[in-house]
Design a protein around this nucleic acid. Structure first.
Lengths: 335, 335
DNA sequence: ATGAAAGCGCTAACAA
DNA sequence: TTGTTAGCGCTTTCAT
């Protein structure tokens, strides 16, 4: 690989001048500039990011830790982050944690080693711990989804409680009273908040979100955030509560799983049983019947997250903003 | 951030000794080792990857360029790559190109700048050009999906022609004779190979895969690789050819789109119209009716790709292996 | 407007 | 067995 020295030599100039041309800093005569540019082209020169980072103490990379690219929710978020990052000249380093705390720790170590200029932690379990580690290492952090105790770190969340309550209101307005719930994974706060809203609306304020399994009388089944488990959970739910008129999926994947089960059983939706989801992933609008759901502006959340982080990098003083997005009801045909 | 100097100071040793401990190279007394380890822990020290890369001329990163994480096919592939990379201590840098040549060029520049130790190019349009650029820059390359002319670069492909032929044989054996095809994007060779198999099997050997649009008499419609377009294409197809008994989707997303359209129209699958796909993404097994499709071992392809690349990095001399995976028919209920 | 030189944090070669 | 030192490729003073 050609180095800046090779370029300087070929251009018949010093490395300082070459550097100035490449970075647009300082004075350079037009002639020198042209000679440098020609040499760069001839040698197919690309500056070495490592060497540059060592000097400037900036890598121009952003680290993103997220649970699982396999869940269609996250790629959209990533797109938002990447698009905004690119606009500002940053490269994104993606790390999947698979919801495993051990992987989350590993991810943070990698980000530190790579000295990313900033990090976005999406739905991480160990948010408090990881945030502290990064801040201690002087790395700006933005949290998406799951928040942290510290008030000085920017966070982007969705008003899950409000969204789920709106969903409940909609079901109620459609006449549903016996509503079942497909619950999310234990580690996900978003899932708990939605469950809380469900419980409250149903008049079960006394039940704690972590304790629902101790209340077998409640029409709730564990679906995690997956299609497959949503499907199984629906089957269990209907076995125990055949008189439900509506099912509220903690997210679209679970609700889509429900839809699949119902189709397989030839149970008509929404006539015999209505279904509502949460997220509004692309697939939701495409299945049959199209899924009524609470839309989350995922792409925009990604953009906002990257923007917040980059601001933070440029100005460490700005305070820990919190952005809360409201989900909006998208009425389609499943409920 | 603490540097190796801080660690040395705290341990009361020289930086050389610290480096030796950290890298497990050379002789170090047990006592010194312990002192270093303690200091590392106390200072929460993490070695700087940039500085190390500058010295060792290896970044321990792999670059992966792929079209679109939003398509469920790719995240599985990424998982395979990441898992294998991690086993060998490599970090993966992911770049999405959105099928855009311009983005592909940008991606290669980024990979060069970051001096990744190797690159995996997945279904890139400019495979020949990009491969040449990287090889010229002395960066080992592995291609997945779309191949290149050069014989010296390892490639991983799927035998699309054979797979599609098998699919056709299956449809034929089920009694189908009037079979429609949902075609893929023009830039994807995989899509063309499947189309070629379809045309050949149907006895239209004379039609060129790039020219099918000039033959309005053929029951083919453009679906790209997407659910949405698959849906639209199915509608168009059935309007023109109401007597089709079977539809062959160029990939699962297109076939899934077809299934959604048919469900919306209350056309029963597979009785009135059978559907078959290609890829076997997770969703295929979960919808109703479960999709009959040609399974691709995507995860394993990712693993194999990473493995090939890492071998290549360690031993630049090994020749350009080609791995061809055979898709296998998974009979479910849609055909 | 340009060149020379110091130094970013690390590894590796050499000396002790 | 350990410490010292010379760079890796780059940016950034400081002279000129």
């Amino acid at each position: 690989m050609a180095t800046i020295k090779d370029v300087a030599q070929r251009a018949g100039l010093g490395v300082g001048t070459v550097s100035r041309v490449l970075n647009g800093s300082g004075y350079v005569s037009d002639e020198a500039r042209q000679r440098v540019l020609d040499a760069v082209r001839d040698l197919n020169y690309v500056p070495n990011a490592q060497a540059r980072a060592l000097m400037t103490r900036r890598t121009m990379t952003l680290g993103v830790a997220l649970p699982d690219l396999t869940n269609p929710y996250f790629p959209r978020l990533v797109r938002g982050i990447e698009d905004e990052a690119q606009r500002h000249g940053y490269t994104v380093i993606l790390l999947e944690t698979d919801w495993q705390p051990a992987n989350e720790r590993r991810a943070i170590d990698i980000l530190r080693r790579q000295s990313v200029d900033g990090a976005i932690l999406v739905d991480v379990t160990l948010s408090d711990l990881l945030t502290n580690i990064l801040i201690a290492a002087n790395t700006p952090v933005v949290l998406i989804g799951r928040g942290a105790e510290r008030q000085d770190v920017p966070q982007i969340t969705v008003n899950n409680y409000k969204g789920a309550t709106e969903a409940m209101q909609w079901m109620f307005s459609k006449g549903h009273r016996r509503i079942g719930f497909l619950a999310g994974p234990e580690h996900a706060v978003s899932a708990k908040q939605r469950l809380r809203a469900y419980l409250d609306f149903m008049g079960w304020e006394a039940v704690l979100v972590d304790d629902w399994e101790k209340h077998p009388e409640l029409p709730i089944a564990q679906a995690d955030y997956s299609f497959e488990r949503g499907r199984e959970a629906t089957e269990q739910l209907l076995q125990k509560y055949p008189d439900l008129t509506c099912i509220f999926g903690v997210n679209d994947m679970a609700a889509l799983g429900a839809l699949a089960y119902l189709a397989a059983q030839s149970i008509s939706v929404p006539d015999t049983l209505a279904v509502i989801g949460f997220d509004d992933v692309l697939m939701a609008s495409l299945v049959h019947p199209p899924l009524t759901t609470m839309h989350q502006p995922v792409y925009d959340m990604g953009v906002a997250g990257a923007r917040l982080l980059i601001e933070r990098i440029k100005n460490a003083e700005c305070e820990g903003q919190r952005l809360v997005f409201d989900p909006v009801l998208v009425v389609r045909q499943s409920c």
